[in-house]
Design a protein around this nucleic acid. Structure first.
Length: 180
DNA sequence: GCCAACGTTGGC
DNA sequence: GCCAACGTTGGC
């Protein structure tokens, strides 16, 4: 069946890949930490559109990932941090490009930044939308897989709240470890 | 609540 | 632009 069809599909796929490559729109993957006391996976599931503005990032590296690299549709590993047990609690997606984080302008808000103005905002966020909740993949689980040993979140001293995830790591986690 | 690791601030 | 002091993160 279908050497020709397969060939055409292959050609089509390659053309698409090339087009995406030259548009710089290759899909990326991210791990994003949230403290469940602040926003948990169940909170996310309860929000309108099951989506949330990822406000409160006050680290330049993490900000730059959102502002400069994230595209709608990017894959997100929703990670519960500063809790017991920590780990990946769900699969999500980037559902907006970056826009100014409103909390930076709100006096008395925890995340108010006196140096930020509407003309020159300092902090940005994207929207993140739930794809599906999964059984928690604990930090200990993640550490037990050699395939994941180079993940940023597993490195000693890691504190960055948003880190890129390798496509191979994403594939392994989503296909082998993530169960509904 | 401890504390190692790391990022930011600000005086010089 | 150095770097000590300070603040924050986040697993444990």
């Amino acid at each position: 069946m279908g050497g020709l069809t397969n060939g055409l599909l292959q050609a089509n796929y390659n053309a698409t890949s090339v087009a995406l490559f030259f548009c710089g729109e290759t899909m990326r993957y991210w791990l994003m930490k949230s403290e469940p006391d602040d926003v948990s996976i169940d909170d996310l599931a309860s929000f309108p559109n099951q989506s949330v503005a990822w406000y409160g990032v006050r680290n330049y590296q993490a900000r730059n990932f959102m502002r400069d690299q994230m595209q709608v549709g990017d894959g997100v590993l929703f990670y519960h941090s500063n809790c017991n047990p920590p780990g990946i609690a769900g699969i999500a997606r980037v559902s907006s490009t970056a826009y100014p984080d409103e909390t930076q302008f709100k006096k008395n808000h925890k995340y108010f930044d006196p140096k930020a103005t509407h003309e020159t905002p300092r902090w940005f966020n994207v929207d993140v939308q739930l794809v599906r909740k999964i059984n928690l993949i604990s930090l200990n689980d993640l550490r037990s897989h050699p395939e994941l040993e180079s993940m940023r979140v597993l490195q000693r001293g890691n504190r960055l709240s948003i880190t890129p995830v390798d496509p191979a790591e994403w594939k392994f986690i989503v296909e082998e470890l993530a169960h509904a």
